[in-house]
């Protein structure tokens, strides 16, 4: 016996149609989101892959007119800048997030910090470069890798702080109570339980911030400056991939244009690689059935 509440044929048709329409829209949106990414990557491969060779990774730039040369100094320079930036941005960012979510909740200081972080997130990166130029480069009287690392590090802070806060707030209250109920001091519970439970999201936030500053050019223009030669000193100007790409791309030479494409490809590959590596290392120990 059919239910008395059987929907009419028309109603059923409309429901099925609406369902299929919604699915189609979702798929279309996915394609629209992913397509530019794939297109950019494919175009980079197409333009840059042919200029990639061993010399690109092992040699420093050659003067105009001489063929060959590479971006070894810029690759290493970017690595140094990003390491320094992460050493500054990650601890301060996570620390700030912990303060906002756990200790300062509802206080005026916390609201002020949150507001500042959001504003800082919206500050154009060139402004950050000028600020660090005034605060670090001018007093030291020279451009340096240190100044570049500081500029990138400060740019990482607001993103990491806000994601850390959001992720900590998502940890259920019951988990915090469990730790407190065991006689664990609050600071210990925050570090070993709450932060650990939220760590996948916190790491994602750090990776987002890292990937963002890895491609930044503007804040490095007046800080790290760039360098045609080998330098790994924090006190000297240092080369960086985005800077090198910028200089080569606006130059009038075809050879340099090709190197700029190759540099862009390498930059993206390095970002993807480091994010994948961090993901791999941090998810290795995760247990079966972890919620």
């Amino acid at each position: 016996m059919p239910s008395r509440y059987q929907p009419s044929a028309l109603h059923r048709f409309r429901r099925i149609a609406a369902n299929q329409l919604a699915s189609a829209l979702a798929i279309a949106s996915t394609v629209i989101v992913v397509a530019p990414l794939v297109a950019i990557f494919a175009y980079l491969l197409f333009k840059g892959a042919s200029s990639l060779n061993l010399a690109f990774f092992t040699q420093t730039p050659k003067p105009v007119g001489e063929p060959g040369g590479g971006m070894a100094n810029a690759i290493v320079g970017s690595g140094i800048l990003l390491a320094l930036a992460s050493a500054i941005g990650v601890p301060i960012g996570i620390g700030g997030g912990i303060y906002l979510a756990e200790f300062g909740r509802g206080t005026r200081l916390a609201n002020f910090i949150r507001f500042t972080a959001d504003v800082l997130n919206g500050v154009p990166s060139i402004v950050m470069g000028i600020a660090i130029y005034a605060l670090v480069v001018l007093p030291q009287k020279h451009f340096s890798a240190f100044a570049g690392g500081v500029a990138l590090g400060i740019m990482m802070v607001p993103t990491i702080t806000r994601t850390t806060e959001e992720m900590l707030l998502m940890v259920p209250h019951s988990v915090r109570e469990a730790a407190l109920g065991l006689g664990v001091p609050n600071w210990r519970s925050v570090l070993s339980i709450t932060l650990k439970t939220a760590s996948p999201g916190v790491i994602t936030g750090c990776m987002l911030a890292f990937a963002r500053v890895a491609g930044e050019t503007a804040p490095l223009l007046f800080t790290a400056l760039g360098n045609e030669f080998w330098s790994t000193s924090l006190g000297e100007p240092i080369a960086a991939l985005p800077l090198q790409i910028y200089v080569y791309a606006i130059s009038p030479y075809n050879e340099w244009h090709r190197l700029a494409w190759a540099g862009a490809l390498v930059l993206i590959l390095l970002i993807v690689l480091s994010v994948a590596l961090v993901r791999y290392v941090t998810t290795r120990g995760v247990l079966k059935g972890t919620a």
């Binding site: 259920p172 019951s174 988990v175 109570e177 469990a178 730790a179 109920g181 065991l182 339980i193 650990k196 439970t197 760590s199 995760v286 247990l287 972890t290 919620a291």
Partner: peptide
């Protein structure tokens, strides 16, 4: 010691 209304094991442990 305290046992709560809803089981609350540490999820990542």
């Amino acid at each position: 010691g305290m046992v709560f209304q809803r089981p609350n094991p540490f999820p990542t442990m």
